[in-house]
């Protein structure tokens, strides 16, 4: 499933990063690589962007950017 459809408050493992977007390189360099564990903390009050915990830090990204990541629930 792609991360933008995921339910907040859940932990996931990244299973794939779509590489057809120039942004996906930055996502990977920030630690969103295959096998990484992410915790979708919440959505912003207006539904978008998402707040994500990756390893030891937190990150915000938009749904369109989260759609570049395939995840499975842990």
């Amino acid at each position: 499933m792609s991360l933008d459809l995921a339910k907040p408050g859940t932990r996931f493992r990244v299973t794939g990063v779509r590489t057809d977007n120039p942004l996906s390189r930055r996502l990977m360099e920030m630690g969103l690589i295959c096998g990484a564990e992410v915790h979708l903390l919440r959505r912003a009050p207006l539904g978008d962007p998402l707040q994500l915990r990756v390893g030891d830090y937190e990150l915000s990204l938009r749904s369109t950017e989260a759609a570049l990541l395939d995840v499975t629930r842990l």
Partner: peptide, 9 residues
Amino acid sequence: PTFLMELPS
């Protein structure tokens, strides 16, 4: 534009 931003503690 994109919105990839670190949220510091």
